[in-house]
Design a binder for these strands. Structure first.
Lengths: 235, 235
DNA sequence: ACAAAAGTGTTCTCGTTACACCCATGT
DNA sequence: ACATGGGTGTAACGAGAACACTTTTGT
């Protein structure tokens, strides 16, 4: 089978950076490592690429194993290839980042992995180069979200505009004018207003909206501009 | 040395998508494969990742071997992991794309590889999944160039604004208003006007400019807006 | 009645676009 | 003289930002 003679073969891992949003904070799902080395330390969920499996399939498999979820938004970020990144044995890692509605996450599934959600601003130490991966993923998320409507992937099917705004404000660590924000969002026509209101956040209550999935898919690559002065926020 | 037992190790390749601009067309540097399989067919320049070499080093090594150039703009695109992508043996490929000033390319160096520049619109058949890589690279280039000033990497140290415009028009396959274009470009203050003019393109002649490298680096991540209506051009 | 969040209306400003027109020069 | 591309001036337009103010309802 090995027909390129004289070349070195290397382990390939896939690691998933899994973002969630609990209504006020952006969080990351980490697992506590059961194996040596670095047993007890926190880590991204990952696994080795299997024969006859492509990268996306490996990422899906790994995400499902931890969260039970399928059909989740996930994109390849980049490969990490420092020869020393894994002290046990050279392993190239292809990192994926995933956005999930945190409420769909089933806790019992993760019992095997000792998984926990961490606020992105107060994360524990991570093994290997996982901290770097997370930093890059955070940047990438900001970058992408400033241009494309991916943050809807973090929200439940019904959400309010103030909730959406909190999410954007969390990602960009800043505050937007709520009046201009809601108008901008609605001007995309990606949202469908529901009859009910969410009264948990205020006395007046805010209308629920749903994503118009057809328009969402069709306009996914169109630029948007929810973020005032994006070039002022170093992305 | 191999201490993760029971896992499969895989060949890792790095392939470079090398863009150039000859003053009127955007081109891609391809090599004609000397080895079986697919001997005689065209291919991206690539090579296997070596022990103790990280991905960027491998990409630099490969680019230098073909073009003699160092210090070139190059960024990782993504990894391609289809188990069947190389019929000889499973090989994961990490693709990089590079932007070079075509005039710095030294032809003799490539004699070993039978390299040739191809217009991006009339490319020969490529081996494996290299066509897909090229398509993705073209998209990525458009995307990135619509937001960041990377296309300067394709130009010689001295260039005129009409040349720059031709480059942008080639990338986006459209025409811009030259009057508005030059104003937009100059408003970034990234360019320094030279005393001489380039008289080859017109009777009046167009002033040469140089990049202000300090400002270029400082503002690299700032958004720009040379492309009118970017959301109308499906990027 | 009041507080507090949601959301509408309106004005100002500035960047983009479209296009008339002038400039420089080789033939 | 005139054709050709390079470049400036300018007016109309529209999107974004700022903010006063109204709406709704729980306490």
């Amino acid at each position: 089978m090995n027909r390129y003679p004289g070349e070195t073969r290397t382990l390939i891992a896939v690691d998933c950076i899994i973002f969630g949003f609990d209504g006020s904070d952006i969080k990351l799902l980490l697992i506590q490592r059961g194996l040596k080395p670095e047993k007890g330390k926190w880590s991204l969920m990952g696994g080795f690429l299997q024969p006859n499996e492509d990268l996306q399939q490996a990422a899906d498999r790994i995400l499902k194993k931890l969260t039970g979820l399928e059909g989740v938004y996930m994109e390849q970020m980049r490969a990490f290839g420092d020869p020393q990144r894994d002290p046990v044995e050279r392993t190239l890692s292809v990192a994926y980042f995933a956005l999930i509605d945190i409420h769909r996450y089933e806790k019992q599934l993760s019992a095997d992995y000792h998984a926990e959600w961490f606020h992105v601003k107060s994360m524990p130490e991570l093994i290997f180069d996982h901290k770097e991966m997370v930093e890059i993923a955070k940047k990438q998320l900001r970058y992408k979200a400033s241009l494309h409507p991916i943050l809807f992937e973090l929200l439940p099917p019904r959400f309010t505009i103030p909730q959406l705004q909190m999410l954007y404000e969390g990602i960009y660590d800043t505050n937007f004018d709520n009046r201009n924000f809601s108008r901008k969002v609605l001007s995309t026509e990606l949202l469908v207003k529901q009859k009910e209101k969410d009264k948990s956040g205020s006395k007046k209550g805010a209308y629920f909206y749903r994503l118009d999935k057809r328009k969402y898919k069709a306009n996914f690559h169109a630029f948007l501009n929810f973020i005032p002065n994006p070039d002022k926020l170093l992305l």
